[in-house]
Structures are given as structure tokens and as C-alpha cells.
Design a protein around this nucleic acid. Structure first.
Length: 249
DNA sequence: AACTAACCCAACCGCCTCGTC
DNA sequence: CGACGAGGCGGTTGGGTTAGT
């Protein structure tokens, strides 16, 4: 297969997305659906390659994405699924509604792997698993992962997490998470819609820092609507935003 | 206050899979 | 059946942010 020319050579833009580009992409997809990704940027008037648009949409702009910190329960689910599936991030993401493979991959590499390593220091029973992780990461064929499924004597990670212990152990962090959410929801709720509806954000410098944007720290309940023949779930934020913009059919 | 190290995550790259012709 | 194109996936990285000195 002939490789498509890279974005730069085609005169297409790379790097972080601006709020204007996001807005164009959201508006276009909410009106027309994404259709052919390669054709989308041209039709939408974006100087990006289709791949970049798809990634931006699926990893960040999609309305059904649940932003914010992972709950303890989600983290444990990831650990369990990783134990079963290995580095199949999309398969893991499919079992965690609202989370993207990229997000899960990041969490795994930045938090969970380290946590497991620390646990292994104090819990020799989990040593097997740590060794398997190391093996699976040095063996891209995933052989060790599939063997894990078959090995009935496989030492499971974190045996200390029985379901009852699990719920009690989540109480603390969840309570904290709630506080966090309440704090954030008290912040200016119009920050993002303002960004979309005013002329204030003209340059990249004006773009609110994504990772600290309070809106994205709020895991919102999902609302659903029917768009282009299929039911789509929106966080209340996106639902409101799109309703205001008259984009929902 | 200034500097450095560590952390985090969005975005990119390149390969793979699948559908179509 | 093979070639091709498009989308999907996992690994990696660049750069911004935060913590530590």
C-alpha cells in the first residue's frame, strides 16, 4: 500500500488543536456526521489530515466522552481487563463507557503500572503478574497474555480486593472525587460555551488549558438523543451546548 | 525567585485489519 | 485472489504543568 504523504508535506497543520478548529470540527460532524474522514477536513474547511481529525474527535471532542479523573473502580476494572486482555486498549475501552483507548493507555502507563509495581514490593503474591507485564511488554505478539487466560493457576493481582473491601476502599476516594466535582461545578459554568459563542478566543494563546479546564473535570450524567438515525449519548454539558447551538436534530 | 526533574497527556507515527473492487 | 484505500490500533514522543530543591 502506498503511504499517504505526511501532513506537513501536504501543507497541512500539525500539533495542538485551536478552539476554532475544534469548533469547526464539532459543528461539521454534528451537522453532517463524519462520513469519510479523509474527505472531511476539506469539506469542513480544516487544514488537517483526516487522521488528525478522527483522532481529535474520538479522543477528545466526541460528546459521549466522560472527562475527569478515573475512579478507583474504573482503575481496578482496567487492571482486571489488562490482566485478561493485555495491551488491547481499545478492547478495554469498549468495556469502560465514556473512556477512550488513549486515555486508558495513558492512565495505565502513568499510574497503574507504577501502582502495581509498588504493590508487588509489598505483595509477593502478585510478583507473577508483574513479571507477566514485563514479558508482555517485551513480547509484542501478546503470547503471554493469551496464556494468562488459559493458565488456571495464574496468580491474580490484588487478591486483597474482594468486592466488599473494594466498595469500602472506594468510599474515601469517591467522597473526595465528589468534593472535587462540587468545587468544579461551582465554577463558571459558561466558560466553555463562552469560548464557543464569543469572539474572545481568537488565538491559540487564548485557548483555555484543556487539562485544567473545570468543565472537563466534571463527569456528567449522560443524556441521549437521536441524531442521524442513531442514538447518541451526550454529557449534559455537550447536550446543553449543542441544544443551544441548535445542532441536535 | 529561579532552576531542574518528574509527571502527565494530547497528538503523532507506522503498522495492521477489513471492506471493496 | 490480490491491490488498494480507509479506518483502527498500539507505541511513542513533545511539550506543558507541577513539584521539589
Amino acid at each position: 500500500m502506498v503511504r499517504a504523504p505526511c501532513c506537513e508535506k501536504m501543507g497541512l497543520k500539525k500539533g495542538p488543536w485551536t478552539v476554532e478548529e475544534d469548533q469547526i470540527l464539532i459543528t461539521y460532524i454534528s451537522r453532517h456526521g463524519h462520513g469519510n474522514w479523509r474527505a472531511l477536513p476539506k469539506q469542513a474547511g480544516l487544514l488537517r489530515c483526516g487522521k488528525s481529525c478522527r483522532l481529535r474527535w474520538t479522543n477528545y471532542l466526541r460528546p459521549d466522552i466522560k472527562r475527569g479523573n478515573f475512579s478507583r473502580q474504573e482503575e481496578e476494572t482496567i487492571i482486571m481487563l489488562h490482566e485478561m486482555l493485555g495491551n488491547r486498549w481499545s478492547a478495554i475501552a469498549a468495556r469502560l463507557p465514556g473512556r477512550t483507548d488513549n486515555e486508558i493507555k495513558n492512565v495505565w502507563h502513568t499510574h497503574l503500572k507504577k501502582r502495581l509495581y509498588k504493590q508487588n514490593q509489598t505483595n509477593p503474591a502478585a510478583e507473577h503478574y508483574a513479571m507477566d507485564i514485563a514479558k508482555s511488554e517485551s513480547n509484542p505478539t501478546g503470547e503471554s497474555n493469551s496464556s494468562k487466560l488459559e493458565d488456571q493457576n495464574y496468580v491474580h493481582l490484588s487478591p486483597q480486593h474482594s468486592s466488599s473491601e473494594f466498595s469500602s476502599s472506594t468510599e474515601f476516594s469517591d467522597a473526595n472525587a465528589d468534593n472535587h466535582i462540587n468545587e468544579n461545578t461551582n465554577m463558571d459554568e459558561n466558560i466553555w460555551s463562552q469560548a464557543f459563542s464569543t469572539e474572545d478566543f481568537k488565538t491559540n494563546e487564548d485557548y483555555p488549558a484543556i487539562t485544567t479546564d473545570p468543565y472537563f473535570q466534571v463527569p456528567s450524567p449522560m443524556l441521549s438523543t437521536t441524531t442521524y438515525g442513531s442514538t447518541v449519548e451526550y454529557t449534559d454539558f455537550w447536550y446543553k451546548l449543542l441544544m443551544e447551538a441548535g445542532e441536535l436534530l
